[in-house]
Structure formats: C-alpha cells, structure tokens
C-alpha cells in the first residue's frame, strides 16, 4: 500500500459523484423510511402507525418464506457456480485462437437484457415449442415448469447458471492470467502434483478475484428479480417468489406502501450487513496476504 497524501481538496473531485449518487440513493431511502411508519389510503394522506408494519412483517409467514427461498436460492447458486466457474477457468486455453473465441462466447450471456434471458429460457423450457422441454418430454420425463415447483426451481437455477457462471469464469481466468510462467516452471522442477499447483499457486492468486466473484454473485442473486419473474412469474403458487419479486408485488401490484417500505428496509439492512462483512473481509485479506505472499 502506497502512503497516500492527505488532501482535503480531493473532496471536490468526489463531490459530483457524491451528489449524483446521493440524489438517487438518499432521497428514495428517506422516502422509504417515511412510508414505513405510516399508512395511506392514497391522495398523499398519511397517518402515523409507528412500527406496526415492521411488527407485521417480522411475524408474517409470507416474508419468512420469501426470505428462506431467497437464502436457499443464493446458496444453491453459489455452491454450483463458484466451483464450476473455477473448473472452467482452469481448463480454458491460455493463448492462441481459442482465447478470444472463449471470451467472446462466454461474455455473451452477460450482455443480454435480463428479461430477454427470461424470455429465452421461458421459450427454451416450454414443452410444446422449446428444445429443452420438448426433448425432456420426448425422453419421457415429466417436466412442466408452470405447474411443478421442482421443475420451476430447476429451470430458474439452470437459467442462472447459464446466465452468470461466465462472470465467475472470467474473473477467475483474469486471476489465473496474472500468474507468471516462472511459477509453473518452478512447480514442474519440484515435481508438484496438479492438485498442489492448484492449491498453492493458482488458488492464492485467484483469492481476491474469487472474493469479488462471490460478493457479486451473492448480492446479484440476492436481488434477482427480472429473470425468474419473466419465466415463472413467481409461481407456481409462490414457489419461486424471491424477496425482490415479493417486494414488487407488494409495492406496485397491491400498492401496499407501508408494508412494502418496511420490507424494503429490512431487505436493505440485510444487504448492508452482507456488503459490510464482504467488504471488511476483502480489504483485510488484501492487506494481510500481500506481505506473506499469499497463504
């Protein structure tokens, strides 16, 4: 770490960014806080209800279930995408014509608008017109994501793997590319096993990007909305109603402002806690591992 010069005037360089983001972040957040302690029948007439919305929310079965579904979903996603991403990154070519080919193709799903991702999978999974659904049906597997919760979950999870594993792959690949060849040569001379190379050379080098990957994947899966909404609409029943979907249903569908605001705040606090933990771990890992050379 380079010692940075203390310069309070640097605030002026940050100020425009601060103002723009604050405009979009602070005013809405304050509004949400205001709504969360009041009730309304429309026409901007509000009356004070204190913390009733929060009490309702904390004790509501609906919120608990959405929250558990969300945790389960994020957990499954991380458990599959991170190892898979590392495995694919390790097998990718390091040079030659295969590199741009892999990179371009793998980055492609990341740049498809989220609702189009949903549409693609909605079509792909349909039994009547979709390749996946049709093939499964032809194989005699009973698969219908609009009726069967398990099929719906599988569809949403496979879709997310399709959509986002590339991010983990590209991050890990970037980490792997930064390892100098000398490391591998030294390992070969020492007769290190494939596992040893991975454990003691590649993994430490990927440490940081891997943390970024986990952070981004966790956060983004935690606020996933568009893709499952397009594919399943949160159904069948409520089986794929994740937190964001539930929130939008409350706020815009039912116009239940107070309840939605209380839920937003609790949701936001959870996100804040997770971001803080990740951020602290990340900055401390960055500082501690460099002098030790990564362990």
């Amino acid at each position: 770490m380079i010692a940075k010069q203390v310069n309070q005037k640097a605030w002026f360089m940050v100020l425009p960014v601060f103002l723009i983001v604050a405009f979009s972040a602070v005013i809405p957040l304050m509004t949400v806080v205001n709504y969360s302690v009041q009730d309304t029948f429309g026409n901007n007439v509000f009356f004070w209800v204190g913390f009733d919305w929060f009490r309702d929310l904390i004790h509501s079965e609906r919120f608990h279930q959405a929250f558990l579904r969300q945790l389960l979903f994020s957990g499954i996603i991380l458990a599959i995408e991170v190892p898979l991403g590392i495995a694919i990154a390790l097998t990718m070519p390091k040079k030659g014509w295969g590199v741009p080919l892999c990179l371009v193709n793998m980055a492609l799903p990341l740049l498809i608008p989220w609702n189009v991702v949903g549409t693609i999978w909605q079509i792909f999974g349909r039994v009547d017109i979709g390749l996946l659904g049709h093939t499964l049906a032809a194989l005699g597997i009973d698969y219908n994501y609009t009726q069967d919760p398990i099929a719906a979950w599988l569809t949403v999870i496979v879709m997310d793997i399709w959509h986002w594993t590339s991010l983990v792959v590209l991050l890990c690949y970037a980490g792997l590319c930064s390892i100098p060849d000398a490391y591998y040569q030294a390992a070969r001379i020492d007769g290190a096993s494939r596992w040893a190379i991975f454990r003691y050379i590649q993994l430490p080098k990927m440490h940081r990007v891997l943390l970024i990957a986990i952070l981004l994947r966790f956060m983004d899966s935690f606020m996933i909305y568009t893709e499952p909404f397009v594919v399943t609409g949160g159904g069948p029943g409520n089986s794929t109603t994740f937190l964001s979907i539930d929130l939008v249903k409350l706020a815009i569908g039912q116009f239940d402002l107070g309840n939605a605001a209380a839920m937003s705040l609790v949701y936001f606090l959870i996100i804040l806690l997770c971001s803080w933990i990740f951020y602290t771990v990340m900055s401390n890992v960055g500082e501690e591992s460099s002098p030790k050379g990564g362990a």
């Binding site: 005013i27 304050m30 509004t31 806080v33 205001n34 009041q38 004070w48």
Partner: peptide, 10 residues
C-alpha cells in the same frame, strides 16, 4: 415534495 410524506419523528 409532498409525496415524501415527512413526519416529525423520521
């Protein structure tokens, strides 16, 4: 900015 629905406590 009425829609922000300010209250004393908040």
């Amino acid at each position: 900015f009425n829609w922000m629905a300010w209250t004393g406590p908040t």
